[in-house]
Amino acid sequence: MIDVVMYVVLGAALGTVGGLFGIGGGLIAIPVLGVLFGLDQQLAQGTALVMVVPNVLLALWRYHQRNHIEMRHAVPLALAGFVFAWWGSLWAVGLDAQAMRLGFVVFLVALAAYNLARMFMRKAEPSTELRQPWPWLGVLGAGSGALGGVFGVGGAVVATPVLTSVFGTTQVVAQGLSLALAAPSTAVTLATYALHHHVYWAMGIPLAIGGLLSISWGVKLAHATPEKVLRSLFCGYLVLCAVVLAFKV
């Protein structure tokens, strides 16, 4: 019982931080589960997905209530994300755990570098129309879904900044489309990891409960924090996790 309470509290903390950074709990939870609890990379990713999937579905439902998601843009993202997340997760579950962890460290560093570079890029005026033809959304969905399937983080962490920078969407539009991409891709990734016994359900379910209870707090805190401060904190967190995990490879 003590363990369950501890996992719920940890899930609440991870959900708050995930809401603060606007990425859900997966990218936050995986390093924590690997470092503090000693889970191997696949097990950490599969367990984190138990928390991520309901968070994404809840966020998508709430977003749909308040904002309109353009289906002609969401469908190619979601379909490509689903297929490539499935392929990526099938590949990931058969990899060596140490190699997976090293790949995850490289992914964190690359993500931190990209987000840091975006702080100094000139920002074009966002538009209601996509700068790139809609078939390129399928390419974005494929790439984001594959990375989400391999690393268990969902595609939103990759898709959102690309939608705002390359496709020229507003942040609100990007978040809605990213949620439409992440919902099916995270679900199929969790199913794949579960079928290959890479999910610790006794930990994942309490984490999910804690995350659902707290993610809204993080979102409120995010709205009260300047964007540059948030991005700097996010980059710092990614680099810190990469360094700590590197020592465990």
Rank of each mutant, 00 (worst) to 15 (best):
L10A: 13
H223T: 09
Q42Y: 11
L207C: 02
P135W: 09
G143C: 03
L102Q: 14
L79D: 11
F84K: 01
H196G: 01
A59V: 11
A59N: 08
Y193C: 04
A112S: 15
G168C: 07
L238K: 10
L195G: 02
A99D: 12
F104P: 05
W201N: 00
T164Q: 10
V162W: 12
G11F: 02
L33A: 06
A113Y: 13
P76N: 14
G19T: 01
A44E: 09
V52N: 00
A97P: 13
A187N: 09
L102P: 04
L147R: 01
Y114C: 07
C235I: 10
P161M: 10
P226S: 09
S214E: 05
G46V: 01
G149K: 03
Y7D: 10
L137V: 11
L212W: 03
K123A: 14
M121C: 05
G38A: 09
C235H: 12
G138Y: 14
F107T: 02
L177W: 00
A174I: 02
R66Q: 15
A187P: 07
A92S: 14
T16A: 12
C235L: 10
P206E: 10
P226T: 10
G152N: 08
P206H: 04
A156T: 09
G46E: 00
P226G: 12
L190E: 00
W217T: 04
L177K: 01
H73V: 00
G24W: 04
L39A: 09
L20K: 06
T189S: 15
L190K: 01
T164G: 02
L39R: 06
G154K: 07
S127C: 11
A242Q: 01
W201V: 00
G204D: 02
S214R: 09
G138D: 11
A224W: 14
V244E: 15
V158C: 05
H68A: 15
N115P: 12
G22V: 00
M1K: 12
K228Q: 15
W136S: 05
A142W: 04
V5R: 04
G88Q: 03
S185R: 07
W61D: 08
V243I: 07
V53W: 03
D40S: 14
S89L: 07
A182C: 07
A246C: 12
A187T: 13
L140G: 05
G218D: 03
L14G: 08
V239K: 02
F82L: 15
V5S: 08
M71H: 08
S165G: 02
V139H: 01
N115E: 15
A202Y: 06
F21D: 02
L213S: 13
L43E: 12
G103E: 11
A74Y: 00
Y63M: 06
G176Q: 01
L36R: 09
Q171Y: 11
F107A: 07
S144Y: 04
L137C: 13
L221M: 14
V249M: 12
C241L: 04
Y63K: 08
V106G: 05
T47L: 04
A159H: 09
L79E: 11
V105K: 13
V17E: 09
G152M: 12
H64Y: 11
G176L: 02
M71C: 05
E129S: 13
P133F: 08
V153G: 06
T47Y: 03
G46C: 03
V153I: 15
L27I: 15
V109N: 06
I28N: 04
